[in-house]
Amino acid sequence: MRKLIYAGILFIALLMQSTLLIHYQPLGVIPDLLMIVVICGALLKGSKFGIQLGLTAGFLQDIILGGFGTNIVIKIFVGYLVGNLEGKIFKQQVLIPVLVVFVMTFVHEFLFLLLSEQLIFSISPLWALQTVILPLAVVNAIFTLVIYPVLHVLERRLYY
C-alpha cells in the first residue's frame, strides 16, 4: 500500500516537474521534486525505503531524459545516505528536512555534473554554483516546506 502511494506521489511530482514548473521556473531553475520526495521518504522510513524510492524516482527521470543510469545512481545514493539519519532526528521538526534537502541538492548536482562527461569539461564550477546549484538548493528547500508535512501526515495515517 505504502509503495503504491509513494509511486503515485513520484509520478505526480514528475508530472508537475515536466509541465507546470517548466513554464513557471522559480528563480530560473526547475525544482527537483522527485529528489525532495526521495529525501523526505528516506528521512521518514529509513535507508532501505530510501534506496527503493531513489531507484524508482531515478528510473522515471532517466526515461524522460533519454539517457540511462545517471539519475538512478545518484538518487539511490542520496536515498541511502539520507535514510541513515532516520531515527536520529525528530520527525515532527520540519526544518531538519529543509536543511537536509538544501545540503543534498549540492551533493546531487555535483554528482550529476561529475557523471555527465559533456558538461563537466565545458562549464566552470563557480558558474554552476552561482547560476544553477545555489538557486536550486533554495527553491528545493522552499518546496520541502510543503512536501514534507504532507508526507509526514500521510505516514501517520498509514501507521495507525
Binding site: 515536466s18 527537483d32 548536482e109
Partner: peptide, 11 residues
C-alpha cells in the same frame, strides 16, 4: 509541448 525537466540540458 514541453522541455525536459533538467536544469543542465534543455531539450
Amino acid at each position: 509541448i514541453g522541455t525536459t525537466p533538467n536544469n543542465w540540458v534543455h531539450n
